[in-house]
Amino acid sequence: MMMREVLSHFQLTYLPIAGMFIFLSLFIGCTVWVWRTGSSQVYKDISELPLSEEKTA
């Protein structure tokens, strides 16, 4: 009941703004991280995984 009361009086228009903020933070953080310097070789190796199976036979 308490949750219902809180939500009944919650300013719902904040939700899109909060959602966008969370998403943008995640997106920017993720983008900055994967393009950090010195990570090229790591990702190059990983991206070869689908092509590596024949070598294991």
Binding site: R4, L7, S8, F10, L12, L15, A18, G19
Partner: peptide, 9 residues
């Protein structure tokens, strides 16, 4: 965030 307010309000 997209469902609960509508389900509980």
């Amino acid at each position: 965030m997209s469902l609960l307010p509508a389900l509980l309000s």
